[in-house]
Design a protein around this nucleic acid. Structure first.
Lengths: 100, 100
DNA sequence: TTGATATATCGGTATTTGTCGATATGTTTG
DNA sequence: CAAACATATCGACAAATACCGATATATCAA
């Protein structure tokens, strides 16, 4: 992982709401209500659930998730009109390794 | 390591110069000229050497180092009028572990 | 004690970020 | 197709950050 990427990721991690979302997504089944359209959390959690729990505006959360996805921290899977986001553990591993 | 600390550290890491300094300090003997007043790099590198190499103003680098030290990323050791900074590997370990 | 040197802190300004409401886009359903 | 819904994008503005030069503080040397 190159330095530019480390910087972008660090910037995204330096925000309480974004960090909290990433923590919630470590255990979606414990932090979000059951999902019905796509059963389970294999593809992650939809924007609406995350937005409600975070309490910021829809546009803010949508942008947060989109940016984290562009940076590789999250993986986006669309099902119809829903967007599901889950953690990309590979990116977290590579990021962590950079500092050791 | 609590979330507030993770955020402060992430913020400090999200800057090219600060990140570069932390990289240089992984191998001081390879990245800085030999030190004479305090032999070797056991206590780290002095502000002047880091400032010259980074190319930003003295005040900026001094503030960067001070902030990274306050956050536990660096360890400050004073010898007379010199301040030496070295990495605090324990903090990097704890920070890294948070994301896994 | 005085001057020189190393570092720290202060005050200012340009740039970036956080966050919103409004609006656009895309998908499903009747 | 039209309405409803989920998400994305845009434009704005307040707050935070990146830097600088000037100055203060602390130590060493003469």
């Amino acid at each position: 992982m190159d330095k530019q990427r480390i910087i972008e990721i660090s910037r995204l991690l330096a925000n309480p709401t974004r960090l909290q979302i990433l923590e919630w997504l470590k255990a979606p089944e414990k932090n979000f209500p059951p999902q019905e359209v796509v059963k389970g959390f294999e593809d992650g959690v939809c924007v609406t659930y995350i937005q409600r729990k975070a309490g910021l505006s829809q546009s803010t959360i949508s942008t947060y998730l989109s940016n984290m996805s562009k940076c590789g921290l999250l993986i986006l899977t669309r099902h119809g009109k829903w967007s599901y986001f889950k953690r990309n553990e590979e990116t977290f591993k590579a990021y962590s390794a950079f500092f050791l």
